[in-house]
Design a protein around this nucleic acid. Structure first.
Lengths: 171, 171
DNA sequence: GCGGTATGAATGAAAG
DNA sequence: CTTTCATTCATACCGC
C-alpha cells in the first residue's frame, strides 16, 4: 500500500495524510496566511501525526495558496477535455501574466505557473528546422520570438498536418 | 516500431519524436523558462503532432533544465561531500510585520516568521472534522480561531496520540 | 515477468 | 506574493 514511507529520507518534510487533511481543511475554511501563532499551533497540533516544523506549515500555505490561485482556471473535467487554454481567446488586460491549471483525472494535481515577460526587449532568433520524420515534412525554419505576438493563429488542429512557423519572441 | 504513440494510455504525456525535437531545439536555442504565452504557443504548435497540454511543455522545460544542471554538477570525482557550513544564522528578530528567511540555500537553516495580526476582530469558525483514516480517529470538530489563544498547551508529543482540538482564531 | 533507466509529474523549499 | 529551484514520486520503456 501506500504505507511505505516513500519519503523515508528525513530531508524534505513528508506530510502524512492526516496532516494534509488538516491543512487542507484549514485552507478550505478560509485560512490563507496564518499568523505566527496560528502556524505554531497548527504545527504543534500536526506534530501528533508526525514530525513537522512550523516552517513546513508556513510553506505549505504559501504554496497551496499560490497554486490554488492559478488553478481556478478551469474546471477539473475529465482528461478527455483536451485543452484548456482559456486564456488565449479572452482579452487579457491583466498586468501580470498568469495562469494555469491542471488537468488529469487521477485527482491530485495542481499545476500552476506564470511567467511574466519582464523585458520589453525582443530578440528574434531563428529556431530549429522543424522536420517531421513521419510526414516527411520539409525543413522549416521556425522563428522563435517570445512574448505574445498573436499575429497569427498558431493553433493547429491535432489533425493538422501543416504547422506554421512557431513565432515566439524571446524576452 | 515507435511510429505509433506507444503510450496509448492517456495517462502520462508521451511526447512524440517531433515534439521532443522541437522542444529540444527551443531549449538549445536558449529558451529556459518560457513565459505563459510562449508555453501556450509552443503547446499549440506541438499539438499538431499529437495530444499535448500546456503543462506538459511547462514540465518539460522544468525537467530539462533541472536535469541539465544536475548533470553538469557531476564534475568532481572525489567524494568531497564535506560541506560544513558554519553559517550562524543571525537571529534578526525585527519587529517587522512579517517575515522569515534565513541564510543559505544549502544546508540547514532557520526560518523565522513573525506575523502581526492586523485586526482586532476575531472570527470564530468551526473547522474540519479531523478524521484519521489510519487510526480511525473519531470525528472531531476543530475550532479554528486565529490569533493566539494560548489557553492551553497545544503542544503534543510526537508520540502523543491524543490531539486536543486546534483552537485558532481567524483574524 | 522483473529489473533498471529515462523522464513526466508533483510539491516542498526557497529566492526574488 | 510571485517565480524558480531541487527533490521526490510515478510511470513508460527497454533490456534481461
Amino acid at each position: 500500500m501506500e504505507a511505505v514511507p516513500v519519503g523515508a529520507k528525513c530531508e524534505r518534510w513528508n506530510p502524512t495524510a492526516e496532516q494534509v487533511k488538516v491543512l487542507t481543511n484549514l485552507f478550505r475554511s478560509g485560512l490563507r496566511t496564518p499568523t505566527t501563532h496560528q502556524i505554531q499551533m497548527i504545527s504543534a497540533h500536526l506534530g501528533a501525526f508526525g514530525k513537522i516544523e512550523s516552517k513546513n506549515v508556513f510553506y505549505w500555505f504559501q504554496n497551496h495558496k499560490a497554486r490554488e490561485r492559478h488553478n481556478k482556471k478551469r474546471r477539473r473535467g475529465p482528461p478527455d477535455d483536451d485543452d484548456e487554454d482559456g486564456t488565449a481567446a479572452g482579452d487579457h488586460r491583466k498586468s501580470r501574466t498568469r495562469c494555469f491549471r491542471v488537468g488529469c483525472s487521477k485527482g491530485k494535481q495542481e499545476v500552476y505557473w506564470q511567467r511574466k515577460e519582464v523585458r520589453g526587449e525582443t530578440e528574434t532568433l531563428e529556431l530549429f528546422p522543424l522536420k517531421s520524420s513521419i510526414s516527411e515534412e520539409a525543413d522549416k525554419v521556425i522563428t522563435v520570438r517570445g512574448e505574445l505576438c498573436g499575429r497569427r493563429a498558431l493553433y493547429l488542429d491535432a489533425a493538422g498536418r501543416d504547422h506554421p512557423p512557431l513565432d515566439l519572441r524571446l524576452s
